[in-house]
């Protein structure tokens, strides 16, 4: 039997809105993934370290405060610096559509906007992370 997909759901920055992060963490768990939720107010450094220590396959970042442009790319960059660029990083929250191409250019694999179903995110992770 293959191992389970390991996911880190993280809240970077000072934003305390974690309804979405918690709902997604639980939905991924119900879909059979191993999920670690960091809690709120994490720095990009803390998130990158947790991702490496926990040996996750993928990191989901949630932000509703508008600080995504400075925080999301930093997580990707730190993972790269620490030799963990194979960990996929996706994001979600209140993110203006015009920011999406910039975030993707900075290495964020996908951005999910309000109204996305948890099923869609589960499908995305299952298609992106192939466990061997």
């Amino acid at each position: 039997m293959s191992r389970k997909i390991r996911v880190l759901i993280a809240k970077p920055g000072l934003d305390g809105h974690d309804r979405g992060a918690k709902v997604i963490a639980r939905a991924l768990r119900d879909a059979g993934m191993e999920v670690i939720y960091t809690g709120i107010r994490q720095t990009p450094e803390q998130i990158a370290n947790a991702a490496i220590q926990e040996g996750v396959d993928i990191v989901g970042l949630s932000s509703l405060s508008g600080a995504h442009m400075s925080l999301f790319p930093k997580v990707v960059q730190l993972l790269k610096e620490k030799g963990a660029e194979d960990i996929v990083v996706f994001g979600g929250g209140i993110i203006p559509v015009d920011d999406i191409p910039l975030l993707k250019k900075a290495g964020i694999s996908e951005i999910f906007l309000p109204g996305t179903s948890t099923e869609e995110i589960i499908r995305y992770i299952q298609e992106t992370i192939k466990i061997t």
Partner: peptide, 22 residues
């Protein structure tokens, strides 16, 4: 904004990207 709500000045490292946002 969040730094004001959490007791950080705008020049605090944790305020980066959050100043004046919410």
């Amino acid at each position: 904004d969040l730094p004001t709500q959490i007791g950080y000045d705008s020049d605090h490292p944790l305020a980066e990207g959050e100043v004046g946002k919410v």
